[in-house]
Structures are given as structure tokens and as C-alpha cells.
Amino acid sequence: MRDALAILAKDLRIEWRTREGISSVFVLGVLLVVVLTMAHDPSPETAPTLAPGVLWAAFVLTGMLGVQRGFLLERENDCLAGLLGAPVDPAAIYAGKLAANVVLLAVMQAVVVPLVGLFLHVDLAARLPALLLVCLLGNVGFASLATLFGALAARVRAREVMLPLLLLPLLVPLLIGAVQATRAVLVGGLAGASGGLGVLVAFDVIFGVAGWLLFAYVVRD
């Protein structure tokens, strides 16, 4: 736990200092929301059904950029060798990197969610607690899988191509669950979102545990 916190603090400090990850994620997130909203020009009636797709497309595409950046930090100057040479359980490295990705994605969500409400004229304030729960579960699931594959992709030459190729097919269940749950929350309330939330919780548990167990095999030669 102590090692994971040290890695999280280190990643956040670097991000705070450079703002490289958050600024690129922010620009892409805003651009996606604007383009997707303008392209559909929804009416007030159709906006709540369009909003989940816009939200999660923006989360996934910007999230991949953020996760990739997290592992590039470890590649520069072969810092990964420094981490792996320390008496640290690889699972703690995974936990630290996962937590850093969750924080980065949460910051990005804090920007994108109000923008979607603004552009699509959806009243998010009344549904905010339920929407935050869906976002958090989706965020943790995405980060669990993306942290594992981000570490794998960082080791190969065509890493920019490899991460989406590996990640996107496996994200399908998460995206279906997240979009269903978000739509249910925006149209009705949390009660109608139980199916989607169940998928998100299952995804979080399965890929959180898989990442915890498999990370050592992914990062070591």
C-alpha cells in the first residue's frame, strides 16, 4: 500500500508539474463533445438518449491518451527498470498506476460531464449523484484494463496502434453497461440502471483482479 501511494504521488506530482496528460486529454475531450453534439443537433426530446454515447465516446478516446502518457513516463530514461529493480511487489506498481489513471480520468470526467449537459441541454444537476456513481464505476473498469494493457503496449514499438487494438474489443461489455446505465439515469433514475451497473461492477472486479494478478508477467522480461 505504501509503495502504491508513493507511485501515485509521484505520477500526480509529475502531471501537476507538466500538465502534459491533462491538457491533451482536455483538448481532445472538449473537441469530441463539440463535434459529436454539433453533428447530431439533437432536439430536447432526443438529447438524453444521445448524451450517453457522447459521454462514453469522449471518455474512452481521451482515456486512452491519458493512460498511454502514464506509461511513457516510465519508459523515458528507463525509469521502469528503476521501479522493477526496487523491492516492490508488481501488484503495488499496478495499484499505483491504476490510481493515477483513475484520478486523471476523474478530472477529465469533471470537465466533460458539464460540457455534455451544456451542449445537449440535459439537466444533470438533479441526476448528479447517480451519474457520478456510473462515471466512477466506468472509470475504475476502464482504468483497470487500460493500466494492464498500457503497460503491455508501452513495451512494444507500435505502442500507439497496439493499445487501442488490444483495449477496444475488451472494453465492449464495459461500454454497453456504461451507456445503458447512463441512459437509464438520465431518462429515469438509478432504479432503472441496475442491469448496466451490474455489468460495470462485474467488469471492475474481474479486470481489477486480473490486472493485479497479471501485471508482474506483463512488465517483467
Binding site: A6, R17, T18, L73, E76, D78, C79, G82, G85, A86
Partner: peptide
């Protein structure tokens, strides 16, 4: 390669590894 983070100072890098070790 030096295995030190370029955006941290020398002292911060050593402090980070000191925690791990």
C-alpha cells in the same frame, strides 16, 4: 539509462526511490 524522472528534481527522484527501498 539513468532511471530518473526528468520532470522531478534530483532530490525528488532520490526521495521517491528512498521510499521504495
Amino acid at each position: 539509462e539513468i532511471s530518473c524522472y526528468p520532470d522531478l528534481s534530483g532530490a525528488e527522484n532520490l526521495a521517491f526511490y528512498a521510499q521504495l527501498f
